[in-house]
């Protein structure tokens, strides 16, 4: 199993330079781990983005013949969100609106790369 406190600390490493919170959630939007400010906001964001993700993953298969949605970036007036897949779960970063989409995506990729093996290990065991 994964150590919850260590997992939260790892997610928290991304919370610098305008990134408010980092979340790990399953495909149904349930929060698995969280690090950041204002947990209530994180849960709402997690639920909605997971729904958008799952619909577009399905749409991609039927309309685009694409097998995999890799990244989702959302730019809103008061914040930016980046979502990517790690094994069977979703990693979501929520940032201030002035944070560059590129750095947001890069941090998400770095976290996803680090968490991929442990989470795959747990999923397969």
């Amino acid at each position: 199993m994964l150590k919850p406190k260590t997992l939260s600390q790892i997610l928290g490493e991304a919370n610098t330079g305008g990134i408010q919170s980092t979340l790990l959630l399953n495909s149904t939007g349930a929060l698995l781990s969280y690090s950041g400010k204002g947990e209530g906001d994180g849960q709402v964001i997690a639920a909605i983005v997971s729904n958008i993700w799952s619909v577009y993953e399905e749409s991609g298969q039927s309309a685009l013949l694409e097998d995999k949605l890799n990244f989702l970036l959302l730019d809103c007036e008061n914040g930016r969100v980046c979502v990517t897949r790690v094994a069977d779960v979703l990693l979501c970063l929520y940032a201030e609106p002035w944070v560059g989409l590129g750095i947001l995506k890069t941090k998400a990729e770095a976290l996803a790369q680090y968490l991929d093996e442990p989470i795959h290990h747990i999923a397969s065991s």
Partner: peptide, 30 residues
């Protein structure tokens, strides 16, 4: 397929972080 984007934008508007301005979906090839 195009109509799903309208719904996604409407949902993103309800995230509590203001109006959604843009979205990027990155698949394997597209």
């Amino acid at each position: 397929f195009l109509s799903t984007f309208g719904m996604a934008t409407d949902q993103a508007n309800k995230l509590g972080i203001g109006k959604n301005k843009l979205m990027v979906f990155a698949y394997s090839n597209i």
